[in-house]
């Protein structure tokens, strides 16, 4: 599976949580950090933590983990081709970040692609905004997306109302785009909240501790 979307839509948190969930279920999991556009807050920052759960973390070699240059580690082709591995791709944001999927697409026949949306982010706060950027990203990726993910949140200030408001907007976008909503992301501190779509409960691993 691959998580795509705009800058700061929550792709990395969801990819990490998904990889951890699959690993805890006993799957052989690899997480590929394909974000070559953001300088910080990438899943590679939590590599050691993920590896403790037996997850193979695919990142550029050595010191190049600190770079923001378009390097695709060759292992990515391996984890996408190996049927025994559940591959989770954490893709960089916006048109420049998603361009990598075009390059990988012949290896992605069995990869489900999730378009992650936070309606409390600039540019995807309306149905029209979501539709516009969905099309832009899909054109750049040269692959079709399979699902939308409703990830409306305000970090530590997220409330049940914020999540529900996001679901409403994403639902409307889903109708226009004719693509289903896979799930709604819910932070663990609101795990009992009432959602329209299936819940995916996450911990926020990237949150700053100060």
């Amino acid at each position: 599976m691959a998580f795509v979307g705009m800058f700061g839509s929550g792709k990395t948190e969801i990819a990490m949580n998904m990889a951890l969930k699959l690993a805890k279920e006993g799957e052989n999991v690899a997480l590929a950090d394909l974000d070559y556009v953001s300088p910080y807050f990438r899943s590679r920052d939590k590599r050691g933590f993920l590896e403790e759960f037996g997850i193979k973390v695919v990142v550029p070699p050595g010191k190049y983990v600190w770079a923001d240059t378009p390097m695709i580690p060759p292992e990515v082709f391996g984890i996408l081709s190996n049927k025994d591995i559940k591959a989770v791709l954490d893709v960089g944001g916006e048109e420049d970040g998603i361009a990598v999927l075009g390059y990988l697409r012949t290896f992605m026949k069995n990869t489900t692609i999730y378009f992650v949306i936070n309606t409390r982010r600039p540019f995807t706060n309306t149905v029209e905004g979501i539709v516009t950027f969905y099309e832009k990203l899909r054109n750049r990726a040269r692959v079709d997306f399979d699902f939308l993910v409703s990830n409306t949140n305000l970090g530590p200030d997220t409330t049940e109302e914020v999540i529900k408001e996001g679901e409403e907007i994403v639902k409307k976008a889903s109708k226009i785009l004719e693509i289903p909503v896979a799930f709604t992301v819910v932070p663990s501190f609101l795990k009992d909240c009432d959602c329209e779509f299936d819940k995916f409960i996450i911990e926020r691993y990237m949150e700053l501790q100060w």
Binding site: R121, L154, G155, D157
Partner: peptide, 14 residues
Amino acid sequence: GEKIMVKGTEAIGE
């Protein structure tokens, strides 16, 4: 207005 989630660069730009 309402609260939104932003990066620092976006906060300064807006």
